[in-house]
Design a protein around this nucleic acid. Structure first.
Lengths: 245, 245
DNA sequence: CGTCGGGTTGAGGGTGATCAAAGTTTGTGG
DNA sequence: CCACAAACTTTGATCACCCTCAACCCGACG
């Protein structure tokens, strides 16, 4: 990863600068954060519901998701996170975890103690603003997710999800011409979409048959982005990627 | 309303103090905010998707909801808000609305210009922290909502929603012994739960038949709170009401 | 008194779940 | 590097939850 040469928090800094104007001092302070880098194997719970962490982590490489489950064990994935995200930033202010954070594929993460994050946001209010805005965008993504599982058909849900993932990976430069590395099983997809794995399989075949995508061996290939957006009624407004909007 | 005697923002202040320790100066600054009080009739869109407001509003009295709709017009309610909430606070940082905010029953609101809110949060970082924490709790509620529509049965969804509403109204002192004033139609309930109005009607009869609740004429009566929580698998952890947690 | 929004009820149908079993790929230990 | 197990994918059959459509009822309100 070329980012490593520029420091482990390069992707994070790039994202936060898109969220809010930061000074050189703000950025330097982020890059000075004491960190503890760790490798996480596939399908591992990084932070569990009920935990009371005294640190958060920056995702340096890989894919993680947040999830909750019903008492009957039915899992619902709530969000996906890519390099540069801080998936459990909320534990800085909400001290007990209300959901799980786990890896999808092997990941590299950097733990940062809450003490240092707290110092960062008090000394650098602009960083606090950037993180607050990030929290707001995350909430906007949750809202769209609710609409997706609440009111769209299985096909539409899946198309919408693929559109969002593609857009987000594009935004952080993790796409290579419509090809996306996505270590998701069909079970993971089902848990994200509120469907059964069997039905995901069939819907996948259907929209693949229509020439919209290919999805096999952890690789998503978007063949007809416009058609996919049309099917999923995808409008990226809710991602608020334009810092001016 | 006795709160009006203590100032229109009394409920807001009470809520924010539960979110984060505020000084007398912080509180005074909130209460000095220039405001513009307005009455809103039933079933009115207060802020529409696509709008670019230069103000937010504090809900003084009544009930409002946030919602999005698919292109086919299928509405999904995303959250309910009670007196003391600032349902469109996000427009302070996300300048274009990605959803609607509309009234359920007649409401009283107080508009506050973004200019004054921005000044408030820069001069009073503790208020900014309280609002950030509020945003995080809101996101936690969205996550639970996703689990609800994604993985729970119609009965469970409804029981869970009633539990959450009851808890939240209890928390702000709007309950009178298991009786809650709730100006929701069955159509509104359906849109909140991702169900059809017809099915809501039948589920309502079912859980009413079991002696858990009564719901008619805009009044919710919780007859068996424990049974309702059990049915809905309700665990209020995600509301993070305890400031210490 | 008529209309309108909302509530209720019935009948029928479809989307997607569940169950079961057979393939296929992945991973692991010998 | 092979053998085996585990995990994932695929397919078929059946089923149920919930939707849609349609009609009727009711109370509020002009």
């Amino acid at each position: 990863m070329s980012e490593q040469a520029l420091g482990p928090f390069e992707r994070l800094v790039r994202k936060l600068r898109m969220r809010w104007p930061l000074s050189e001092a703000d950025i330097a302070a982020i890059q000075r954060l004491p960190l503890h880098i760790k490798s996480v194997p596939n399908h591992t719970t990084i932070v569990a519901e009920g935990a009371r962490p005294n640190q958060s982590f920056v995702l340096l490489d890989g894919l993680v998701c947040r999830s909750k489950a019903t008492n009957a064990g039915r899992r619902q994935i709530l969000s996906f996170h890519v390099a540069g995200d801080i998936p459990d930033l909320q534990s800085l202010h909400l001290h007990i975890m209300d959901h799980d954070v786990s890896s999808l594929g092997p990941c590299s993460i950097a733990h940062v103690a809450h003490i240092h994050l707290r110092e960062l946001v008090t000394e650098h209010p602009q960083v606090a603003n950037a993180l607050w805005r990030d929290t707001l965008i995350e909430a906007a993504m949750f809202r769209e997710w609710i609409l997706n599982v609440g009111r769209r058909s299985a096909e539409q849900r899946m198309a919408h999800l693929f559109c969002e993932i593609a857009d987000r990976l594009d935004a952080v430069g993790l796409a290579h011409g419509g090809v996306y590395e996505l270590p998701l099983t069909q079970i993971d997809l089902a848990d994200a979409l509120g469907l059964s794995a069997v039905h995901v399989n069939r819907v996948l075949q259907e929209i693949r048959g229509r020439g919209l995508i290919e999805f096999q061996k952890s690789t998503l290939l978007v063949k007809d982005a416009a058609g996919l957006r049309l099917l999923g009624e995808y409008d990226p407004l809710y991602l608020h990627n334009d810092p001016a909007s």
